[in-house]
């Protein structure tokens, strides 16, 4: 299975199986980067997996003041969901509860997509009739009176149907510490890749899942083949010297963005070497039948 090796790190001849998703991007600005970060962190909280959170979201990049619409420091976030309806609902509730509420914030479209999602066009009603619409350079914005002045919000944002979710890398290491170091390196590389995010805590997931469960009604359960403590009990995918496995799941605005993030992550984990980081790198899939996008590790080296 491990015919490939780079810098002493074995690379599985495997592939990550990923799915089509709907996604949007938002730009959140504030008087300081600190407060833009707070609004964005709040917005993207509890957004690790569509299984139970409704969406997957994270900060894509921090933006210098010159790069934002209003010339204040800002943050770009990406939000992914399985359907347009669910994405619309998540954008409305999350921006309404986490950005509208955050001091000094403003919110803009971060993507020119093929379709539009309501942003301020839905949130304006908070203004109770005192909201003001302004069209500037052909785009509509809403000014909603709030207690610290005005919440300024673009009317709509773009939606893309080209988004891909579920790209991933499995970092297998000889110790839990080495697995964490490898996963951190991968997460940092993904974070630096534009148009791609790793939605799990710090970009890392330790509870990889398989489809189905012995219990009725549970859609997913622990990925037993990669649990080191189940090595003797199930058909394990782990070698005898693997002590811990961590996964980085990647969503991107396009298949190319996911591939670029996986490529960067793979390079970062390989550079770390088998002693400091992972001694083997794999990828999660479901046999190739569920997802349309297959990212083969050998193509990303």
């Amino acid at each position: 299975m491990n015919l490939l090796a780079r810098n002493g790190v074995a690379i599985d001849e495997s592939f990550a199986e990923a799915f089509d998703m709907r996604a949007t991007a938002l730009v959140i600005t504030a008087p300081t980067l600190h407060w833009a970060r707070i609004a964005a962190t709040s917005l993207t909280g509890f957004a690790t997996s569509v299984i139970a959170c409704g969406c997957e979201a994270a900060i894509d990049a921090e933006l210098a003041a010159e790069a934002t619409p209003d010339g204040r420091p800002g943050v770009r976030v990406l939000i992914f969901s399985a359907s347009t309806t669910e994405l619309q609902k998540q954008v409305q509730t999350r921006v309404g509860q986490c950005v509208l509420t955050s001091p000094g914030s403003a919110c803009y479209a971060g993507l020119a997509g093929e379709e539009a999602l309501k942003l301020g066009d839905g949130l304006r009603y908070f203004g109770d009739g005192w909201q003001i619409a302004k069209r500037i350079d052909g785009r509509r914005y809403w000014r909603v009176p709030v207690m610290d002045g005005e919440f300024f919000c673009e009317g709509s944002t773009g939606l893309t149907k080209q988004a891909v979710g579920g790209g991933n890398l499995l970092l297998l290491a000889r110790s839990a510490g080495a697995a964490l170091r490898a996963a951190e390196a991968v997460a940092a590389a993904v974070a630096a890749t534009p148009d791609a995010i790793a939605p799990f805590p710090g970009g890392i997931v330790r509870s990889g899942s398989k489809v189905g469960s012995k219990y009725k009604g549970l859609p997913a359960s622990t990925n037993d083949a990669y649990c080191p403590t189940l090595r003797g009990s199930v058909a394990s995918a782990l070698d005898a010297d693997t002590a811990a496995v961590l996964e980085v799941v990647i969503d991107g605005l396009s298949a190319a963005a996911v591939a670029a993030a996986m490529r960067a992550g793979l390079a970062a984990a390989v550079a770390l070497g088998p002693e400091q980081g992972a001694h083997r790198i794999g990828a999660g899939n479901y046999g190739g039948k569920l997802g349309r996008h297959h990212f083969h590790l050998k193509d990303l080296l």
């Binding site: 619409p69 209003d70 010339g71 204040r72 500037i136 002045g149 005005e150 300024f152």
Partner: peptide, 16 residues
Amino acid sequence: AGLAADSAFLRLLARA
């Protein structure tokens, strides 16, 4: 009526 200090609207308008 109060002017929002450091108004994002005015910043965007100035830029336009």
